[in-house]
Simulated scan of single mutants.
Amino acid sequence: MNAVKPRLRVGMVGTGYWAGHVHLPSLRAHPDVELVGIWGRNNLAAERLGEQFGVDAYPDLDGLIDTVDVVDLSISPAAQADIATRAAKAGKHLLIEKPIADTLKAGAALADAVRVQGVAAVTLLIHRLRPERAAWLDARRAEKPTSAHAHWHSTAMRPDSPYAGSLWRKDFSPLWDVGPHIIHQLESVLGPVVAVSAFAVGQRTRVALTMIHAGGATSAVAIDMASSRDQPLQTIDVLTGTGMHNSPPLSIDGVLSHTHALRLLRDEIRSGVTEHGFGVDVGLRTLAVLEATDRSMARDGAVVDVDIV
């Protein structure tokens, strides 16, 4: 008779819109998770979410970290890098948002902590976490792709968006917000990005990006984060040896993707084997591409090599 495996004790770090609408509903409903508590810089917000989800709001971050097996983070990249590194050094497993840090140096410190401590970590890249999208991307990779185009039109930075008050999104180009999703998908088909050329348009809510991949394939990305469209448009077109392939529609369901991420994290913790392809190494590679795009935009779209990590 199989022994019943204990549930993972998880602490939530973050009290923003995405934490309340994606992370916490998923954690609360997962049969293998015990949601222990919530911490945030705004203790009143933590208390409100704690009351909503039936758990304690912790006034002390270290107190929460000490109590749990897993730390789930939904905060700004700079704060996430610092807190996730502290949690990893304390031997805690991680479920982290993208981008994993605000600089490549901070991301490398996080990756080193995860590796040295031997903890499990999964990055929440919600599109490729969906099995149907992963299967479509894998099929395209097998068909000798030569190029791809991605279009991302979102309302995230419009004044009426729940993300409009996000300070870190205003400080960075849109590529730092949605770029990890796009880069991760395109690299899974065309291979690692080795060079980029990027332009920001208007109030930095629109970006045009060209990427050169190892082996010579190319990809082009158009992003508009303050689109006049009421419905998001997120498509990928891939040219392969069998013709042009358009990505099938994918509903954005962050809770479903988070639930898949929890399953991957649970399996890694139980097996000790990392096979899922959503670890901090993926997040670190994405950071290298993002920093290269910033250097390119600062040089009026000059082609910039991506640092090897």
Rank of each mutant, 00 (worst) to 15 (best):
K170G: 10
D300W: 11
A226I: 12
T242S: 12
A29C: 12
W168F: 15
A208Q: 12
I126T: 10
M211V: 13
D281L: 08
F278M: 03
H153Q: 14
L27F: 10
D171V: 09
T155R: 15
A88I: 04
S166E: 12
A200R: 14
S197C: 04
L125F: 15
R130K: 14
L287D: 01
A226P: 14
A195R: 14
G165H: 10
L104F: 00
G11S: 03
D224W: 14
L8C: 07
V221Q: 09
E51S: 13
I65T: 05
S228Y: 10
A87L: 05
D60P: 06
V33A: 06
A81V: 01
V36H: 04
H30T: 07
A220D: 09
G16P: 06
G272M: 08
G179D: 08
V282T: 12
I65V: 14
H260T: 11
L8D: 03
P145R: 02
P162C: 03
T155A: 10
G20N: 06
G118I: 05
G241W: 10
T242C: 01
G40C: 07
V178K: 08
G215C: 05
A87Y: 04
S26G: 15
W39F: 15
A19Q: 13
T286P: 02
V304E: 09
V303Y: 07
V55P: 08
F278W: 03
G216P: 13
E268R: 15
A222Y: 14
T240E: 00
A120K: 05
A111W: 07
Y58C: 00
L35M: 12
E132P: 02
A45C: 01
L290F: 11
G118T: 03
A292K: 06
S26F: 12
E51P: 03
E34T: 13
L290S: 02
A217Q: 13
A150H: 08
R266N: 14
L186K: 05
A121E: 09
V71S: 02
Y17N: 11
V122Q: 08
R285D: 01
L49H: 04
V201P: 01
R48G: 04
L290M: 08
A198T: 11
S251M: 14
D305K: 15
G272E: 06
D300I: 03
A3E: 07
G179F: 09
G179E: 08
G202L: 05
G191T: 04
P77A: 00
